[in-house]
């Protein structure tokens, strides 16, 4: 590990993504990335009794696929890092119990996947571990009932709200060589610009993404045009427009190579307001579209900045504004 500037870490000893697995719901399957989504399900509950149990089953399948894709066995996994959006990370906790490998739960809302991969890369670089499993999931129905209203409750959403994706992604990070190399990581600082409206998460998270990106570019002395693809996690249309503006003010121009996964995950004819949000948003697209494109050589250098809004229903009801964070990973084709 080598420190660059204030916040960025460069992975010195090689660290690769050797396995990936994803699972998406019906709505996501019919979205923009439909060609890349390999596994999907039409049953939200996965044949279980509750949405929460269904979410756990989905996460179990995702982990299984990631481990299988890496051509490993569960016993080869040294540690499992991950989290989800449920209170106390129940989904991941229950899945970890079944896996029976050491587990550390990570809560970073929708930026869980980059936080986990960042920590995994540091651990591998440190030399203590060989294979690390990282995964995360979000589920529309279970998140909706935890954060908002019952599903059948008839209300109108604000035009600037986002739609929690039912999707998840898992990765096996290893020191074993593979085409997808993790080269740099940058953990973000928590930013709070005073946005209180829980429906407007894009506006709450855009400053965090801007802060992490600007610090990363300053630390590495690079600029947005040095990358083939820059993706933010789930800012939505409004949030990504705000990010473009904020970055422009700081002197970085985000152009054609920038895209927000939340904004693009659903196709335009699907009713999703500003786009998707949720931990599974960036994880599932990283596991499918981004890695596919890296493998076929379209992208050589990719930045993924997953953003997370760190509020709870209690802090929100007490009128506190929404703090948010963004963690960045840089991937390269080796």
């Amino acid at each position: 590990m080598k420190r660059l500037g204030k916040q960025t870490l460069e992975v010195v000893n090689n660290c690769y993504i050797i396995g990936r697995g994803s699972l998406v719901g019906e709505k996501e399957k019919n979205g923009t990335f439909r060609k890349y989504m390999e596994y999907s399900t039409d049953d939200d509950k996965m044949g279980e009794k509750t949405f929460e149990k269904g979410e756990r089953k989905m996460l179990r399948l995702i982990n299984k696929r990631a481990i299988k894709d890496a051509e490993l066995l569960v016993d080869d996994i040294d540690i499992y890092l991950g989290g989800d959006l449920m209170n106390q990370l129940v989904s991941s906790n229950y899945v970890a119990e079944v896996l029976q490998v050491p587990f550390v739960g990570i809560y970073s809302a929708c930026s869980t996947i980059t936080a986990s991969i960042g920590i995994a890369a540091s651990l591998i670089d440190g030399g203590g571990f060989k294979n690390i499993l990282c995964s995360t999931i979000s589920h529309f129905s279970s998140a909706e009932r935890q954060y908002r209203y019952p599903l059948e409750f008839g209300n109108q959403r604000q035009s600037y709200s986002q739609w929690t994706v039912t999707a998840g992604g898992g990765f096996v990070i290893s020191s074993k060589k593979s085409p997808i190399k993790i080269t740099k990581i940058c953990f973000g600082r928590v930013q709070d610009f005073g946005v209180v409206d829980i429906a407007n998460m894009g506006a709450a998270m855009a400053p965090a993404a801007c802060d992490t990106l600007c610090n990363f570019f300053a630390d590495t002395k690079t600029k947005p045009s040095d990358y083939d693809f820059i993706a933010t996690g789930d800012l939505g249309k409004l949030g990504s427009d705000i990010l473009r503006d904020l970055m422009k003010k700081k002197g970085f121009l985000l152009e054609q190579n920038y895209s927000d996964i939340g904004h693009s995950i659903y196709s335009f004819d699907e009713e999703s307001y500003q786009g998707g949000s949720g931990a599974g948003c960036s994880a599932s697209v990283l596991a499918t579209y981004i890695i596919d494109k890296l493998l076929d050589g379209t992208f050589k250098k990719v930045l993924l900045v997953a953003t997370g809004a760190l509020m709870s229903t209690i802090s929100n009801q007490q009128g506190d504004s929404i703090p948010s964070v963004a963690h960045l990973i840089e991937l390269e084709k080796s």
């Binding site: 035009s159 610009f193 005073g194 409004l238 705000i242």
Partner: peptide
Amino acid sequence: KRNEEYLLYVERETPKT
């Protein structure tokens, strides 16, 4: 001051129903 300016800006950008 930063937050105030930012919130005004967000208000302007947010699509109205």
